[in-house]
Design a protein around this nucleic acid. Sequence first.
DNA 1: GAGTAAAATCGTAATATCACGATAAAACGG
DNA 2: CCGTTTTATCGTGATATTACGATTTTACTC
Lengths: 117, 117
Amino acid sequence: MTKNTQGGETSLAETADDALDVFKALSNPVRLQILQWLREPRKNFPVERGIADPDEVGVCVSHITEKTELAQSTVSSFMSVLERADLVIATRVGKWTHYRRNEERIRQLVEMLGRTL
Amino acid sequence: MTKNTQGGETSLAETADDALDVFKALSNPVRLQILQWLREPRKNFPVERGIADPDEVGVCVSHITEKTELAQSTVSSFMSVLERADLVIATRVGKWTHYRRNEERIRQLVEMLGRTL
DNA sequence: GAGTAAAATCGTAATATCACGATAAAACGG
DNA sequence: CCGTTTTATCGTGATATTACGATTTTACTC
């Protein structure tokens, strides 16, 4: 994990450096696509693989890997890029690492862009 | 020029592909910085170089080059990346190519991100 | 037309990102 | 503890981006 301990509260100030990380993370078509898919986990990942509720905890890496048709290692590193940019939150449930969107952070981000961009 | 003939009207639909170009354009610290500088041309580029009004037509490449401390050729290509992403508008006045922010497009973009991101 | 100044284009080396397979680490089941 | 499954990490080629100097194009001036 990177900054926050996956918990609820989020830090206030968004620096310009944060923005750069976000833009870098989003400047790849597959990563952008994955973030879109995660908007509706149940719709875009119909087959159940992990045990947990996708709306709760997100979608596991193996499932995302299948959909992207990229290698597992590639998707794994893509997901950590998205995580480092705080765009997604990782939760490990058993063997599965589930990723879900960090909706609060994304909202903050859009709001920040509205001010600073 | 790329799409619109530098005129006033803007196309409606923003595709996801456009978004990718924008993110790519903004995923470089210097390009991001330049876009910020262009928010206040008179403040950030006090010395007059071109003839035209900076608030009207923008800031010329040589002036931006000085401030970035990069080579002229680098800045020139950076500016065309920003232009291809429709984030800035180029206007040639004599020998000088002036760049200014495409505020309308940037607003649209932020609004689009609020919906789709 | 010759000379000059600003910007764009071209060729290039250095660096970063992408995408992979192989391997290691984590977590479980028997 | 051993085997299996899932994910993470590592090493490596392929491709893309960065940044430069040299050259070309554009536009002005004499």
